[in-house]
Nucleic acid binder design. Structure first.
Length: 272
DNA sequence: CACATTGTTACCAG
DNA sequence: ACTGGTAACAATGT
């Protein structure tokens, strides 16, 4: 469940360890990990490249290399990225070892084998980055932009927030949290939101994501930052995972429903 | 054992 | 063409 705040925390912890390093080799231990490239081609294309920047776009972790290529990593649900000493024992479910100069390596571990890695350039963006929506924590994300992205559609607002083409980086946890802060029921059709609700929602999205980064991410189970440490935002969550517990605003019990196959938490009194 | 967990995409129907 | 719903994927925990 690494969403924007978790990937950003990973980026912050890994940047000093990766910047300026040269990739001297790669070992792929799961055949489906790398998209659109055979293992030998991947190794040939990446060997000798210098890491020029450590970036993030939505939930994608991205290394910019010195020849115009980039390496993206999407952690999906249980992926973990760390930099380890090459001599350190390799943990179970480690599927990528990106060997760097100085005796260290970037390791990707993933209990569920859902994580994906892609080596790309401007002409060959991975599918998830082609139509990705605005970055919610930048000035480009405004009430007007959110309204334009949503259009006058009838789908439930929570489903829209989970669509990465509408806004980048929001997952199940932060969608529930943002809707609670804005006082909006997750099943409300998008076209029923008022002007002031759009404003509140835009601000709430920025607030919960910034809080998530401030508290170094939410660790429900698997999430760890680039140094293997859990986050602490799970202690600050207002509704997610709090079914039956009292609403922090009105003390009514938090309700959990299924919306589009996803667990959805909200306060039936505060969110209309 | 059945089911929940979740991000993305493939697929289907209107 | 567009919208929106559902299933599939994967593995583990309850």
């Amino acid at each position: 469940m690494p969403e924007l705040p978790e990937v950003e925390t990973i980026r912050l912890t890994l940047e000093p360890k990766l910047l300026g390093k040269t990739i001297i080799g790669a070992e792929i231990l799961h055949p489906k990990l790398v998209q659109g490239l055979a293992e030998t081609d991947f190794q040939a294309k990446i060997k000798g490249r210098l890491i020029q920047a450590v970036k993030r776009r939505g939930k994608y972790f991205i290394l910019s290399l010195d020849d115009g290529q980039s390496l993206s990593v999407h952690l999906r649900m249980t992926g973990q990225l760390t930099v380890a000493d090459s001599a350190d024992p390799v943990q179970k479910a480690t599927y990528l070892r990106l060997k760097l100069d100085g005796g260290v390596e970037l390791r990707l571990k993933d209990q569920r084998k859902f994580a994906r890695v892609c080596l790309f350039n401007m002409e060959s963006l991975p599918s998830g980055l082609v139509k990705i929506g605005p970055e919610p924590l930048t000035a480009e994300f405004t009430t007007t932009v959110l309204q334009e992205q949503l259009g006058r559609r009838k789908l439930a607002i929570k489903k829209a927030l989970l669509n990465q083409e509408i806004v980048a980086g929001i997952g199940n946890i932060y969608a529930d949290e943002a809707l609670f802060l804005a006082g909006i029921h997750p099943e409300r059709p998008v076209d029923s939101l008022t002007e002031s609700e759009f404003t509140d929602l835009t601000q709430s999205i920025k607030t919960v994501l910034a809080e998530g980064i401030e508290f170094r991410g939410t660790t429900k189970r698997d999430y760890r930052d680039g140094e293997g440490n859990p986050g602490s935002y799970q202690d600050k969550l207002r509704v997610y995972g709090r079914k039956g517990l009292s609403c922090p605003k009105c003390k009514a019990p938090i309700v959990k429903i299924n919306l589009g196959g996803r667990g959805t938490h909200f306060c039936p009194r505060c969110q209309k």
